[in-house]
Design a protein around this nucleic acid. Sequence first.
RNA 1: GCCCGAGUGGUGAAAUUGGCAAACACGCACGACUCAAAAUCGUGUGCCUCACGGCUUGUGGGUUCAAGUCCCACCUCGGGCACCA
Length: 973
Amino acid sequence: MSVYSKLENKWNRLWQKAGVYEPLLSLPKGKSKSSVIRKPFYNLMMFPYPSAEGLHIGGVRTFSGVDIFGRFKRMQGLDVFEPIGLDGFGIHSENYALKIKKHPMKLAKVTEKNFYRQLGAIGNGFAWNEHLETYDPEYYKWTQWIFVQMFNRGLAYRKKMAVNWCPSCKTVLADEQVISGECERCIANVVKKDLEQWFFRTTKYAERLLTDLEKIDWPEPIKIAQRNWIGRSEGASIKFSITTSQFSIEVFTTRPDTLFGATYLVLSPEHALLRNNGLGVKNYEEVKKYIEKAKSRSLEDRAEAKEKTGVELSGVYAINPANKEKIPIWVADYVLAGYGTGAIMAVPAHDERDFEFAKKYKLPIRQVIAPKFSEIVNPPRPEKSTIHRKTVHVILRRLTDDKILMLQWKGKVWGDNPPRTFIIGGVEDNEDAVKSAEREIWEETGYKNVRFVRKLNFEVHTEYFAAHKDENRYAEINILYFEVDSDDHGEVSSEEIQKHDPVWVNEKEVASFINVVDGPFIWSWFKNGDKAYTSSGATINSEKFSGTDSETAKWEITKFVGGERKTQFRLRDWLISRQRYWGPPIPMIYCPACAEASAGKENAGWQAVPEEDLPVRLPFVKNYQPKGTGVSPLAAQEKFYKVRCPKCKAWARRETDVSDTFLDSAWYFLRYIDPKNKKEIFSKALAKKWLPVNMYIGGAEHAVLHLLYVRFITKVFKDWGVIDFNEPFKKFRTHGLIIKDGSKMSKSKGNVVSPDFYFKKFGADAMRMYLAFLSPLDQGGDFRDAGISGLTRFLTRAKNISKKLARTLKEKLPEDSEIFLHQSIKKITGDIENLRYNTAISQLMMLLNGLEELSTVPWGAYEIFLKLLAPFAPFLAEESYQSFKKNKSFKKEHSIHLAPWPKFDTKKITAADFDMVIQINGRVRATLKASVGINQAAAEKLARADANVKIYLVGKTPRKIIFISNRLINFVV
RNA sequence: GCCCGAGUGGUGAAAUUGGCAAACACGCACGACUCAAAAUCGUGUGCCUCACGGCUUGUGGGUUCAAGUCCCACCUCGGGCACCA
C-alpha cells in the first residue's frame, strides 16, 4: 500500500462516516441544524456509461473536474448534492458483453463494482447514498412508468414506416443515433427498413425545444447544433394538379417566390402515390425497379452518391399552378420521404440540387430571381422617378495578352467618384443584346473586329441615381462575352473620349478595378457561374409578380395559387423501440381481440401494462444475442410474452422490444434526489427543493442526443405537472476530450490510459491537480505523464511549508504579501467559477512560491492557502488542516471541505505602487515605479526625468501623449 | 459543400478583453549538496547579436499612439451537419 492510498483510505473512511458529502436531501423538520440555512446546489456530471474495461483517464479528468467545482460551491456555503450512478443498460454494454461472450446481466455486476472502486479512488465528494443503476428494477420500473404515461397521454404511438436499421447491432435506431449514415455505437452503415415501431412525439415539442434555448446558459455551439437539428423552416405547401388523375401532389417549399421557375416535380421513392401506380404511370415497371434499388441503398450511399439519379414518370404531368404550364414528374432519391410531403417542386435556376439534376437530365432551367444591387455611392433617390432600361455589360477579352477591356470614367458622371466599369450600354427597342453590345464596343472603344462568344443565361439588376439625367435608373443587365484578336481599332469620337478612357486590365485585377456595386458579382458570375442562384433578389419572368422583391413575392405568390403558409421542422419523432435484450421491456400488451374492436385506430389493440404490475422484469435469457429478424430475443420467450389482456382478459402478447437506452438517461437526474422512493417516481417536494440542476458538465458529443432527449422529457414532465420547470439544466458546460498520441483513446488502438496505475503511483491529489492543470476544462489535450512531477513537487512543498509556520497565531503577513494573498483569493475564486482550473492552480503555485520566501508563515495565511487548495487536493488539504486544528474526533463540521471559502478584501487588493510603462512611439523605453492613481502631469514629469527616456525625447516635442491610468504613458514624437 | 472552433517557445499553456507577449509548469543546460546517482535547492532558458539593439503570436494586407486580441483576404488543423427543398 502506497503512502497515498493510506492517507486516502483514512480520509475516505472518515468523510463517509461523518457524512461530509451527504446533502440534507429531505426538507428540514424543525430548525435545529445549521445545514438548514445552506442553499441547495445540484452539481451533476453527465451520466456515465462505463464498460467493464473501466474508466479511462479522460473520464477521470471530467469527474474530478466536476468535483472541484462541487467542492468549491460546498465551501461557499451551499448544500452541494453530487450524486453518482451508472447507465448500465443499453447497446454499448450489451455489445461489449457480446464481444467478450459474457452475459450482460452478470457483466453488469463486475462493471459496477470496478467502476465504483475506481471512482472511490479519485477523491470525489459523491453522495454515495443516492447512487442508482439503470438496470435496477427499482429504477426501470419508473422508466416503464414513463412509457405508460406517454402512451396514456397520446405521446407514444406505433407506426409502420421506413426506419433506420443497423445491420450490425441488429436493431432500429432513432435519427439522432445515426451519425452521417453510420450507427452511433458501432459505425456500421445504416439502412432503411419498413418496420412497425414505437415512437414518442418529440415533434410536438419542436417549437418549445427551439425557443427555450434562449433561456438557458449553455455553450453557444451546443445551442447551434440543437437549432440546426430541430431545423425550423418557414415556407408554403403548394398543390400541383395532375393530368391523369384526380389526385394532386402537395409540395413543401421555402421558396414559393420561385414558383414560376418550377420546371418539374420530384417525388421521393417512398412517396405514397407511387405505391400502386395510382397515377397511371406508363413506365411503372421501370419506376418500380428504381424504387426498389433506392430502398436497398444505405443512407450513406444515398447521401454521398456522386451523381443524382432518377426516372421520369411517363405519360403523367403536373400543372404548375402559377403559369398553368405542363411540367414533368420524376422520382429521385435525392428527395427524402421523411421531410415535408416527400415531394418537391424543382427550381433548377435557384436550387443547387435541382440544378445538378436538371443539367444531367437536360430539364429546362428558368431564372426567376435576379440578384439586385443598389449603388452605394449614388443610391436611387426615393423622390425621383425611376426609368427601367435593358442594358448590356460587355466583357471583352484581348486574346493577344488575355486582358479585359474596361472603362475609366471621367468627372462626376453618376456621383462624386468617377466609376470604373465594363463596357456598358442600353439596349434600344429595335435591337437584340448582341447587336447593341457590338454597337457599344464600337462607339466607346473603337474596336470593330470583335467576336461574340456567348451571352450569360443570367440577368442582374442594379438601381442607381443618374445625376446627369436627374432620374433613378433601374438596369436589367445582360452579360455578354466577346473576344478580339488584335489591338486594331478605329477612332473614338471626341464626345466619348471626354466621357471615359478604355483600360486593359489584367484578369486578376478586374474585381478590384471595378468600383461599382454590381461589378465584382458580375465578374465572378462570369468566371464561376453556371450554377444555381440561391439568394433573394428581384422577381423576373413571373408574370404580374415580376419586379417585386422576392421576399414579398413569397407570400403573394403563395396566396395567388391557393397555397398555405407552413412551418416545417427537420426534427422527427423519437423512435423508441430496440430489438435487443439489454434494456427495459416496453410495458405494452397487444390484444388481438381488442384490436378487432378498434380496427383502424391508432395503436389499435395495444394496452399499457397497469401501473401496479410494473416493473415488467427483464428475464434472464441465456440466448440474449440479437436475432436480426426485426424482433428482440425476448420474442423467443413464451413465458415472457404470453399474457392476458389487461382489458378483456383474452390471451394477448406482450411487447418484446425494449426501449432505447437514451430514455433511461433522459430522466435519471430526477430520480437521484429520491432513488429509494417506492410509491412515486420522485417526491414533488424534493424536486421543488433540488431542481433544476444548477451545474451540468458533460461531453459535447451529446449535443443532439442525450441533451435533446432530456430537454424533451423535462418539458413533458412539466406538462404533466410532475415538475414545475421547463429546462433540466440551467447551466451546462462541456469538457474537452483527452486524447493519446493524437487520437481518441480506444482499446482497438491500444492507447487507453488507465487511471489505476497513475493514481496508485502519484496519488489522487497529484493526479487531480495534474489533470486540472493540463488545460482549461472545456479544452482537451494529449495525455502525457511528463508534467505530473511538477504537481507532485508542488504538493510536497505545500506540505513542507507547515514547518515554517509562525509560533504565535497573531503573526501577520508583510503588507505586500498580504496584498498578493488577497489578489490570489480573487483570482482563484473567479477562475474556479469559470472552470479555469489551470490558471487557478498557477496562482496557487505563485502563492506558495511567495510564502516560501518568508522566514515564517503566519497561520492565518496558511489556512487560507489550504482552503484554496482543498477543492483540488482534498486529501492533503484535509490532513494538513486537521493536524493543526487538533479536533479530538473527526466530525462533519470539522472538515476543511465544509469550512467557509476565503473572502478577499477589496481594500487589500490594490498595491500602493505599480510598474508604469513608458513608451516612445509605442515602444517600451522604461518601466518606473509609480504610485497608484498618479495623474498625467505627474506621470509625465516622472517619465521625462528618466535618463533613457531623455535620450529619446531630446530636442523633440511630443505630438501627442497617451496616458492610460495606472498602466502606461506613451509619447508620440 | 455548409456551420462552428482553433493556429503563440522544444512541450502543456498564460495574457485583467486593444496597453510590457510567453505568466505558471514540464523539459533542457549549468551550478550546489553527494564517492556517485536519485531526490532537493539555486541560476539560466523565444529567435538573431560579443554587445547596443533588433525581430517574434499560421501567411499577406489594413485600422490604431499601441494589435496575439479589431477589420479584409488566404493557408493549415480539429469538430459538427450533410441532398431537410
